[in-house]
Design a binder for these strands. Structure first.
Length: 766
DNA sequence: CGTGCACATCTTTTT
DNA sequence: GATGTGCACG
């Protein structure tokens, strides 16, 4: 129950609202800090969400700004929704006017408002990665490149990386091409941009980059938004990428009322371009920033925290911080060894029932975490057999399913007729006899005339394509136009129903009686339900608004914490959540930590942070499990136990029989140092802090100075020793040979940029 | 010209 | 175990 309600009369307010009472000193400090840059280093379970919500409530309470002048950027839609609800509880309905959401959703909102300035229209399409891949694929085909040798996905990955670094096609091809793949990507890049533009479409990256372009081209607009957003808050700041960094810098360069919250130990999205140096350098960017660490953990037992700490200590690059808790010591963590993944799933299912009974818990108190989505399958089987209700979060997203993408492509075409990509997706879906050759001709015509495909097929009769296909396309055009008409006359749901009927899209599934087609039909019906719900509940029930909404939702957002079901999700998906009982499964080498593909380095430190995130989700009980054999690539493979199990503090970990686990300390790689614990420190558990801050330099490894990389090339991820700064990790490298410079994060000295030529760096691991 | 079937390939994490 | 590609047929 909220203990504070905003009064609307003229009564004098106390200067400090009563909702601040439940906060600890540091939290209170963070909430009451209103103006100027603020960096909150929030350890896992330290009440971060609470601080953020109270801080916003306080800003409103102090009348520092109207709700719509506050911009709060979160990592998931769900986090935004929950936070907003909590602020509504604290200060009332006005909180609904906050600009609160993910970077992507907030900036797409701004982009729709300002679309004309960028030569787009406000009903632009948003392409997800599958759409992007298709666009890239057509471009590759046009360039006569074999899409089997050069995978669109890899090209997209390179282009996306460049975009997020704000590197233009020109700069990219001049300075960043080092392989034939990059050369191809460089050539596709420019065409890809042009194609998206022509389609009046933006991809996920554009949603972050276009605002920067917008503000650079129109300083007056930048000024407008700078003025408008009096306060900016960013959650999960350790996972922001360069583009996100740039756009927030632009917006805050005026009043500098920026508050970021994050935890470098929980940075797990570098594959998506997240740049940990954003948070590490915050105080350099904003020299008068106040830094508040939140180190008291309210979530977990001492045993769990100690375990987490013993793991994360193996990372070289981290900000020093010491989490502590007043919670009980709690039970030891149990390691479960299994014969194979079926065994693993069955044992976990059985244990869940047992613990649920013994501890009088509900299924909703349990979470089973894994590294990759495909691991969920066996678990689902086991749970179904045992009659355990579960909710699977993530996996193949509903809106990514083929049939759903087909239908949304139809809808996108209705809203944005210039969207060639969507047209290509549905022109022969269901099959109406429009083949490859026809499309080739139409595409040629479109290119020559600068028109969209939709415009071209308006006069399909004069295109000179294969005669029998003309009426088929004519029919397609007619149906689309009729649907267009319907949209004006009847509601959204009825329009879509009409479309599905007339195009025969659902009919194809009814005629075919395979298991597959039944599922697909169900999914389409499910989409229809979603549309119907949207139409009833939204205050702007337009088709465009619906498409906007679904283009940015993820399955993570659908997670229901109230549902009495065991949660199954990836470790990534679990960030920000907590459960009384957590199982971390598949703790095997090449799975967790994941094994890289050939020629690809795996960032073990990031894997370790991910493991740390997973551990710190647990409140009371934590289990680690691994299988000695696992089915992968269609065959059974012998697995080795994860090195992480050699790193955990054996004082708080037990086998199923209660024995101490055997550990191989040498399994830790050089650079990932292990610092031994006193066995009895775990049980002592001092009231304030269970850990002493560690300030010794890494021990137990042989140090050889003047040890250069074999090939003389420095790479991010390498562990180094500097005679003065001590142990560090290479974050960034630029230049070659004599000119080479490296950015290194030193555990004891922070981040430094060094000329390799002068700095006496020694390589101690990679 | 377009379609349907058999085959291989490959699964990291997500806005 | 799903999705994309290659090949033979209508």
């Amino acid at each position: 129950m909220p203990d504070f309600v905003l009064k609307n009369d003229d009564e004098q307010r106390p200067s400090s609202p009563s909702f601040l009472k439940g906060l600890n000193g540091r939290q209170k400090e963070a909430v009451e800090h209103t103006d100027g840059p603020l960096l909150i280093i929030a350890g896992a379970g330290s009440g971060k969400t609470r601080v953020l919500t109270y801080r916003i409530a306080n800003l409103l309470y102090q009348e520092k700004a109207y709700a719509n002048q506050i911009l709060a950027l979160t990592f998931t839609n769900k986090a935004a929704r929950e936070m907003k609800d909590r602020i509504v509880d604290l200060i009332g309905e006005q909180a609904n006017r906050l600009w609160m959401g993910t970077f992507h959703s907030i900036f797409s909102r701004i982009l729709r408002i300002e679309a004309e300035q960028l030569d787009y229209t406000r009903n632009f399409s948003i392409y997800d990665s599958v759409d992007s891949d298709r666009v890239i694929k057509t471009i590759l085909q046009e360039m006569n490149i074999n899409t089997k040798e050069v995978k669109p996905q890899s090209v997209r990955y390179i282009i996306s990386g460049a975009k997020n670094q704000l590197i233009t096609p020109e700069t990219f091809s001049n300075n960043f091409v080092q392989s034939s793949m990059e050369d191809i990507a460089a050539r596709v890049y420019e065409r890809y941009l042009a194609r998206c533009k022509k389609n009046n479409a933006m991809d996920f990256d554009d949603l972050l980059i276009k605002p920067i372009e917008l503000f650079e081209a129109h300083p007056n607009l930048l000024h407008k938004y700078q003025e408008h957003f009096r306060y900016i808050l960013i959650d999960e700041y350790q996972d922001t990428n360069h583009a996100q960094y740039r756009v927030t810098r632009m917006l805050t360069s005026g009043n500098q009322n920026i508050c970021v919250v994050g935890d470098d130990s929980q940075s797990i999205y570098s594959f998506r371009g997240a740049d940990i140096s954003n948070i590490l350098n915050f105080q350099e960017d904003y020299p008068n920033a106040v830094r508040i660490p939140l180190e008291q953990n309210y979530r977990s037992t001492k045993a769990i925290l100690q375990c987490a700490d013993s793991v994360i200590r193996n990372n070289v690059s981290r900000l020093d911080k010491t989490l502590w808790t007043r919670n009980d010591q709690g039970d030891a963590i149990t390691v479960i060894e299994n014969y194979d993944e079926r065994d693993e799933a069955n044992r976990i299912a059985r244990m869940i029932d047992e613990i649920k009974m013994r501890r009088n818990l509900s299924y909703r108190d349990f979470a089973v975490l894994y590294r990759t989505n495909y691991q969920s399958r066996v678990l689902e089987d086991a749970f179904r057999r045992r009659g355990i209700t579960y909710q699977l979060v993530g996996g193949v997203s509903f809106y990514q399913r083929r049939e759903i993408k087909d239908v949304t492509a139809y809808l996108r075409l209705l809203v944005n007729s210039g969207d060639d990509e969507s047209l290509l997706r549905v022109i022969n879906e269901p099959v109406r006899g429009v083949g490859e050759k026809t499309i080739l001709i139409l595409a040629q015509l479109a290119r020559d005339s600068g028109k969209s495909l939709w415009d071209v097929i308006q006069n399909v009769e004069s295109t000179g394509i294969y005669k029998p296909t003309i009426p088929r396309i004519r029919n397609f055009v007619d149906v689309m136009q009729q649907t267009q008409q319907k949209l004006q006359e009847v509601g959204l749901t009825d329009t879509v129903r009409f479309l599905l009927e007339e195009t025969g899209y659902v009919k194809q599934f009814i005629e075919e009686h395979s298991h597959d087609s039944i599922m697909r039909r169900q999914n389409v019906m499910e989409l229809l339900n979603a549309i119907s719900f949207f139409e009833k509940s939204s205050n702007t029930p337009s088709l465009g608004a619906f498409l906007q909404e679904i283009s940015l939702v993820t399955d993570l957002d659908a997670h229901d914490t109230e549902k009495p079901a065991v949660t199954l999700m990836t470790a990534h998906g679990s960030k920000g959540l907590e459960f009384p009982v957590v199982y971390i499964t598949g703790l095997e080498e090449d799975l967790f930590p994941i094994g890289g593909r050939v020629g690809e380095e795996v960032d073990v430190e990031e894997e370790r942070r991910l493991f740390y995130v997973a551990i710190t989700r647990a409140k009371k009980l934590l289990f680690f499990s691994y299988a000695k054999n696992r089915f992968r690539f269609g065959e059974q493979i012998e697995m080795r136990r994860s090195r992480f199990l050699d790193e955990v503090d054996s004082a708080v970990v037990r086998t199923e029989t209660g024995a101490t686990i055997r550990q191989d300390r040498s399994a830790s790689r050089p650079g990932s140092t292990y610092i031994a614990y006193d066995e009895d420190r775990a049980s002592t558990g001092s009231r304030t802090s269970i850990f002493q801050p560690e300030q010794t330099s890494p021990t137990g490894m042989s140090i050889e100075y003047d040890n250069m990389p074999d090939d003389g090339v420095w790479r991010p991820g390498m562990a180094v020793i500097h005679p003065k700064f001590g142990a560090g990790k290479v974050l960034q490298c630029e230049g070659r040979g004599e000119q080479a410079k490296v950015t290194v994060f030193f555990k004891n000295a922070g981040q430094k940029k060094l000329m390799v030529k002068f700095a006496k760096l020694s390589l101690i691991g990679s």
